[in-house]
């Protein structure tokens, strides 16, 4: 187990390196760049421009620049934002908690609802509820997230006027209740795809388990149906589900860029979106590499959890 973990962690290093190299090359291909702002300035002399480029290390060949960036990355330094002139690490760390709040809320909501819907639909297979969950799931998977967000804004924000449609806090407010009110719509928007996909997943894997012999044995022993379902069936049905969730969690953070844009949520996705327009490459690089790392980590944790939860699986 320990060896497998170590192996997987070592295997992740070339992946991250590969992604950072490719991202770096693309940033070099991109128009604009750190010196473009100064080059536009007509009063700037060539010598001054050259000095600025030297200062920023832009006179060096690309591979040298990359190694420099990599060396700093290992020390937790992602460079300096062109726009804000502050360390990228600090800018990202400021935004990260906001994204984590949103992702956490969306994830929690999706888990609770998907489990409830999935289990109930499986228990009452082919009932009206089952068909309703199925229909909702189909629609949930067919709706573009941003459109769903807009419709929520329109209905709850504009028509009913009960929930705020943008931002994290009303002006001047900092309370938790205010945050919660602002959180409802974006969290639901972020979670809708998973509510749809996961509830179908939970349903079908629970149905698969429910016909196994040991469930019949448990029932024959006279165990209460509730206990059979929750203790015997669900626990086993959820093993593959853990993997699915583990893989999906980092994708949540990436998908948050859409939700954060729709709801003007000041998180990492929104930061990324803004940095595109501003051509703030160090910020883009930082977020790209961090999210790639999160995706790899999510996959790894999912695999390890799978092995821990299912004693039949042995690694190395």
């Amino acid at each position: 187990m320990l060896r497998y973990t170590a192996q997987r962690l070592l295997g992740a290093i070339p992946l991250i390196l590969g992604i950072s190299v490719i991202s770096f090359v693309f940033m070099q291909l991109a128009p604009g760049g750190p010196d473009a702002m100064f080059a536009r300035n007509g009063r700037m002399s060539d010598e001054q421009l050259a000095a600025i480029r030297r200062n920023m290390g832009l006179d060096k060949p690309v591979p040298v620049q990359y190694l420099h960036w990599l060396k700093n990355l290992l020390r937790g330094d992602l460079g300096t934002s062109y726009v804000q002139n502050r360390p990228v690490t600090r800018i990202i760390l400021e935004r990260l908690p906001n994204t984590l709040i949103l992702v956490g809320a969306g994830l929690g909501l999706a888990l609770v609802l998907a489990l409830a819907f999935g289990v109930l639909a499986a228990v009452r297979q082919y009932s009206l509820f089952d068909h309703a969950v199925n229909a909702v799931a189909f629609f949930g998977l067919a709706m573009p997230v941003f459109w769903f967000g807009l419709m929520l804004q329109l209905f709850f924000g504009v028509r009913l006027g009960v929930l705020p449609t943008a931002g994290m806090h009303a002006t001047g407010e900092t309370g938790a209740l205010d945050l919660l009110k602002h959180l409802v719509l974006p969290a639901f928007t972020l979670g809708i795809g998973s509510i749809a996909g996961w509830s179908r997943y939970v349903r079908s894997s629970l149905l698969e388990v429910i016909h196994k012999d040991y469930i019949r044995t448990a029932r024959a022993k006279g165990v209460r149906e509730r206990v059979v379902l929750l203790r015997h069936a669900l626990r086993n049905a959820l093993i593959p589900f853990v993997t699915v969730v583990g893989i999906d969690i980092p994708l949540y953070a990436v998908g948050a860029v859409v939700t954060e844009t729709v709801f003007a949520w000041p998180g990492m996705g929104r930061l990324f979106y803004d940095s595109l327009a501003a051509r703030d490459y160090p910020v883009q690089m930082g977020i790209l590499v961090l999210s790639a790392f999160a995706i790899i980590l999510g996959n790894l944790v999912a695999d390890l959890l799978y092995a821990i939860l299912d004693p039949r699986i042995k690694y190395g």
Partner: peptide, 11 residues
């Protein structure tokens, strides 16, 4: 698969 595809498409 490790690429955050949406981010990368935007870039």
């Amino acid at each position: 698969l490790a690429f955050p595809a949406l981010f990368f498409l935007l870039v």
